[in-house]
Nucleic acid binder design. Sequence first.
DNA 1: TCTGGGGTCCTAGGACCC
DNA 2: TCTGGGGTCCTAGGACCC
Length: 434
Amino acid sequence: MPRPIFALVDCNNFYASCEKLFRPDLKDRPLIVLSNNDGCVVARSKEAKALGIKTGVPVFKLRHEIRQHNIALFSSNYALYSDLSSRVMRSLEELAQRVEIYSIDEAFLDLTGNQSLISNTAFGQQVRQVIGDWTGITVCVGIAPTKTLAKLANHAAKQYPATQGVVDLSDPLRQRQLMALLPVDKVWGIGRRLALRLQSMGINSALDLAKANPKNIREQFSVVVERTVRELNGESCISLEEAPPTKKQIVCSRSFGSRVTTVQEMREAICQHSARAAEKLRKEKRYAKRISVFIRTSPFNAHQSQYSNSATGELSVPSDDSRDLINQAMRLLNSLWRDGYQYAKAGVMLSDLYAPGVYQPSLFDQGSQRQPPNQKRQESQKSQALMSTLDKINQGGKSKIFFAGQGVKTGWIMKREYLSPAYTTNWDDILKVK
DNA sequence: TCTGGGGTCCTAGGACCC
DNA sequence: TCTGGGGTCCTAGGACCC
């Protein structure tokens, strides 16, 4: 077996770069992208980072800075980001045999046994060049014998301009030098909680963690952290996953644009989330047996009385029919609903998912004997046809046809005051050169 | 007034069975 | 009425990721 080599390619300031791509007039201006409902900061351009603006900060706390530094604001435009993401990913697939799309702005490449005559660093530069030319997006590349080290290499490539965006950590000596500089919470898989516990044990840098005894780490933490220690020492434990794993659950949830107080509005929201979840389910070609509904008030509002609850139900047989899922969700909502609260968020979760033809109904399952098989088959075919028509008409994320329960005059709908046009996915929004 | 959404994995503990 | 151990399955909660 040849020694594994991974490259992690990560887009710089991805959402902010997507917005700037179509707005050259904003080239040097600080820019931030906001979460759904324009709530808090999720992405920043390099100018905004330089001003010390952090992700996760609620935008109302930044009013002063926004005015003072003339910061450009954008609502999240996922149609735009996912389109540009797939352009980047398709380009990467031209450059490497095996590619794992890890997130909307990151991919691992497997360079194991690469016979190319150029060095790892030269290859990294080539990736940067090609992605920049073909998509307009700037990326950084980290190269190392394990995914965890490739992540660290990428971090260094971003942090130190002298690297020109590419860091090759094949050499164990360089691995150690870099790890000595990086705090332990920069390691992939070490979040805030774990970092605190590790620091209390005197493990402060990535190198401290690498030097820890894996057996002890497993006893005090878990196999996951043990694996991280091994990966930091160059032992590859996490392999490249080319095919995206099939989903085990599907969640659709949203905070409301304004608080919901009536059961009627809540029904509309839950109906809409159920319909969206059912769409995603059909796209995954799965059938769901279990469905959960949750509703809650805002945990940030200490003055008001709080309520948060969820309910779970099962369908008699797994289904991908929006109507079945909506019906069950409505029943669950009825059991959850309490008057007199200001609801801030609600959602629907589908789980216990089956591929077509896999589910074995038990002898006593409801409905399994009531209808003759012929009639059942016909109903199932009708449902299939109806749902696929619905999905075809609604393709492209526009709800042209929807269920009456979703409501039409929704006061709770998401706020997106600073939305950019869908430059790449809608003919009406395409840029015109004058 | 205003604080995101969508996932995964692991572990502990309870229910149940023999 | 009381008792032990071992196994499996499920769920809730906690941790992480982007």
